[in-house]
Amino acid sequence: MKKILIASTALVAAGMITAGSASASEKIKLNLGGYSKWWVVGAWQDDSFEAATNTGTAGQGNANSVDVKGDNEIWFSGSTKLDNGLEVGINIELEAGGNTDSAGGGDQIDKSYVYVAGGFGKVIVGTESNGTVLMHTMAPDAAGNTGADGILTGGLAIARPSNVTAKVTTEIDTDAEADKITYVAPSFYGFTVGGSYVPNTAEDNQNVFNGTTTQTGSAANEIYGVAAMYAGTIVGVGVKASAGWVNYDVAQSTDRSNEYAFGTQLSYAGFTLGGSYRMVRENASGGVNSVANGNNASGDTWDIGLMYETGPWAVGAFYLNSTSNGVIATQGEDEFTVYQVSGKYNMGAGVDLLATIGHAEYDDELAKASNADANHNEGWAVMTGLSLQF
């Protein structure tokens, strides 16, 4: 895969050199975009987690069951077309506050990349999601309240016990936004393919974890992956489908680990039915991360959802289940489950009123064996929010 991507990049570079003058008529001008999403959330969970810290450790005293959660980004983007027909562009995404960004509310640059596009497809260089994530199809949700940034799926309402290692999304987001090269081919009758190569995830301080909760987990020295996607209409039914594969090193093993993801959506007469699946197979062969003693992140995650949309309204139901082998020496299985119903009402261009009610439950392998409260938590959450896109 590495050789393929390097060869593709070399071909693009050669095309740029031989295509004639590449001077643009004017410099790139950046445009503003982005979104602001805020939720008012009420959550009720096990007593031992009512005063939990943001690391998922049970605390003391009484906790307020109502909170405000935000997710905000400002996008700076622009492009220009060169005299040889190539499009060159840039995109920078600024985390603009709220409780759901990866820094816990601190402003930071989330993604920053440049791209070159033409008849050959598109080459992206920088901190963008990998190709399998860009093409991945997940179960629908009316409020878009799923994945790593979802209030329940992301562990932002019901506290996640620190020992539970189950994944929160079917996207293969293991490398996060580490520096990488991604290629996306032109669409052909609805089909497209692509791939990414990450030469060193440590350059962006994004490590592939082996099930530990610290940044000292086993970093992948390199990652590569490929993906395929179809979007079109078959006998009047809208069809979206995707498949992805990612391969990476685990520090304590000479073997390589694999992740696979698949997703499908079918749409007809306002209804959308869809689901997706992610399989993680970490091939650590010795030490504390040995598959033999169960201390690894191998597991399975799947979701399913049904949504109905008519006019400005959308409603839907969503379910996610995730399991992993866990982090303790005793062979076992961690589990994370979410089910929720959501709604959306479009109040005007780029302005949506959102609502979700749902339940989340975490089970650590020790909790299943001994009913230990510190390793089990579950609860309900009710929330309403406002989403602005600009």
Rank of each mutant, 00 (worst) to 15 (best):
A7L: 07
A13V: 07
A13K: 12
A14S: 10
A22E: 05
K27F: 10
K29A: 14
Y35P: 02
S36N: 10
W38F: 09
A43H: 09
F49R: 08
G56Q: 04
G59D: 03
Q60M: 07
D67C: 01
D67W: 00
D71I: 02
E73M: 10
I74V: 15
I74A: 13
S77K: 10
K81D: 09
L82A: 09
L82T: 06
L86P: 00
N91F: 05
E95H: 04
G104K: 10
Y115P: 04
Y115A: 01
G119M: 02
P140T: 09
D141P: 06
A148S: 13
G154K: 00
G154A: 03
G155M: 04
L156K: 15
R160M: 02
R160L: 13
P161C: 14
V168H: 00
E171T: 13
D175R: 12
A185Y: 04
P186A: 12
G195F: 08
Y197N: 04
N200G: 09
Q206C: 04
G211I: 06
T216E: 14
A220S: 14
A220Y: 02
A228G: 15
Y230S: 09
T233I: 14
V237S: 05
V239S: 11
W245N: 06
V246G: 00
S253D: 10
S253W: 09
E259A: 15
L266I: 11
L273Q: 03
G274M: 07
G275A: 07
G275M: 10
S276N: 04
Y277L: 15
V280H: 01
A284R: 01
G287P: 11
V291I: 12
V291K: 12
N293E: 06
N295E: 07
N296S: 11
A297R: 15
D300W: 01
T301I: 01
G311T: 10
G311P: 10
A317M: 13
S324F: 05
A329D: 11
E335C: 03
E335R: 15
F336N: 11
V341Q: 02
G343E: 05
K344D: 01
M347T: 11
M347F: 14
T356V: 15
E361I: 13
Y362Q: 06
A369R: 13
N371L: 13
W380K: 09
M383D: 03
M383P: 00
T384H: 05
T384W: 08
T384P: 03
